[in-house]
C-alpha cells in the first residue's frame, strides 16, 4: 500500500533582474543561472514527508523543460524523491499554463496507468511566471479536486486527506477524497537540504523522458506574452532628515496630507 505521489517542479532563473530583448520584446534567459523554483522546494519536502509518514509510498518528480532542466529533477531526487520524469521536446516547450497543465495532466495519467497516482503536489507559484494556477488547471484536466494555499496536511491516507487552507480571513479545513491536487504555501514545512547520499544517488538516477509523441497529443496554448517591458521608473523621492522626532513627524504628516494619503 502507500501513496503514489507526483510532485511538479520547474527550473527557473535564480536571479530576478532579467532583461528584455528590445527587438522581440521577449525575456532574455540565456546565460542566467537556473535552479529549482524556490516555492517548489516546499512541495518536494511535503511529498517526502508524506512518504515518511505513510509506509510504502513513492514520490515521482515531474517537470516540463529542456534537457538542461533535468538539473531540477536531480535536485528533487537528492532531496528524497524516488523517480523522475522530464517532459520535453519542441512541441511541449514554451507553452502557456493551459498547454503546460495539459501536458502535466497527461503525464500523470500515463503514470497512473503504471500504478495509480493518489496525489499531485505543487508549489504556490513560480518566480518567473508568478501565476499560481497550474495546480488548479492540472487538476481540472484530470477531473480531480484541488485545494491551493495549503499550509498543513493534517492527515492523509490512500483514500482521503484533511488539509488546512490559508484564506485571507483565516483557516478553512477541507476534506479531500483522493486522487487530488494540492497547492502548497511556504508555511507548510521547512525544506531540508539534500543529503550527500541523496546527491550521489541523484547523479546516477535514470530519468524517464517523454515527448508530445509519448503523451499522444500536442498541447495548444490559449495565451501568449506579446511583449515584456520593465516597469515605469520610480521618480526620485523626498527626504526628511534632521530635527527632533516631533518635527520630523509633523513634516511627514504634512507631506502625506499634501499627497492626499491620509484621510
Amino acid at each position: 500500500m502507500g501513496l503514489n505521489i507526483v510532485v511538479c517542479v520547474k527550473n527557473t532563473p535564480s536571479t530576478l533582474s532579467v532583461e528584455v530583448d528590445s527587438s522581440t520584446g521577449q525575456v532574455k534567459t540565456e546565460g542566467l543561472l537556473f535552479a529549482i523554483n524556490p516555492l517548489d522546494e516546499y512541495a518536494v519536502e511535503e511529498a517526502v514527508r508524506i512518504k515518511e509518514r505513510v509506509p510504502g509510498s513513492t514520490v515521482t518528480v515531474l517537470t516540463l523543460g529542456s534537457e538542461a532542466d533535468q538539473a531540477v529533477l536531480r535536485e528533487a531526487l537528492s532531496r528524497g524523491c524516488d523517480s523522475a520524469v522530464l517532459l520535453t521536446g519542441p512541441e511541449l516547450l514554451g507553452g502557456d499554463t493551459y498547454a503546460t497543465s495539459q501536458a502535466l495532466a497527461a503525464a500523470i495519467r500515463k503514470l497512473s496507468g503504471q500504478k495509480p497516482v493518489h496525489l499531485a503536489l505543487f508549489g504556490k507559484n513560480t518566480n518567473d511566471g508568478n501565476s499560481g494556477v497550474v495546480a488548479g488547471q492540472t487538476a481540472a484536466w484530470l477531473d480531480w479536486p484541488c485545494v491551493i494555499s495549503v499550509k498543513k496536511i493534517e492527515s492523509i491516507d490512500e483514500s482521503a486527506a484533511l488539509v488546512w487552507r490559508m484564506m485571507e480571513d483565516g483557516i478553512d479545513k477541507i476534506k479531500l477524497q483522493l486522487p487530488a491536487a494540492i497547492g502548497t504555501i511556504k508555511e507548510i514545512n521547512e525544506p531540508r537540504l539534500p543529503s550527500l547520499r541523496g546527491k550521489m544517488a541523484a547523479k546516477k538516477a535514470a530519468i524517464t523522458k517523454w515527448t508530445a509523441a509519448d503523451l499522444g497529443f500536442k498541447p495548444e496554448s490559449k495565451a501568449r506574452i506579446a511583449r515584456s517591458s520593465p516597469p515605469p521608473h520610480r521618480p526620485a523621492g523626498q527626504r526628511l532628515e534632521g530635527g527632533t522626532p516631533e518635527e520630523l513627524a509633523r513634516r511627514l504628516v504634512d507631506a502625506l496630507l499634501e499627497r492626499k494619503l491620509l484621510s
Binding site: 501565476s131 494556477v133 488547471q137 487538476a139 481540472a140 484536466w141 490559508m166 484564506m167 496554448s221 490559449k222
Partner: peptide
C-alpha cells in the same frame, strides 16, 4: 486575485478552453 479567484480561474480556464491571465 485572491485564493478563491485563483482557485476558480484554473478550473474555469480548462473547462471553457480559455486563455488565462492572473493579477
Amino acid at each position: 486575485s485572491n485564493v478563491m479567484g485563483r482557485s476558480l480561474a484554473g478550473r474555469l480556464a480548462v473547462k471553457l478552453e480559455a486563455g488565462l491571465a492572473t493579477d
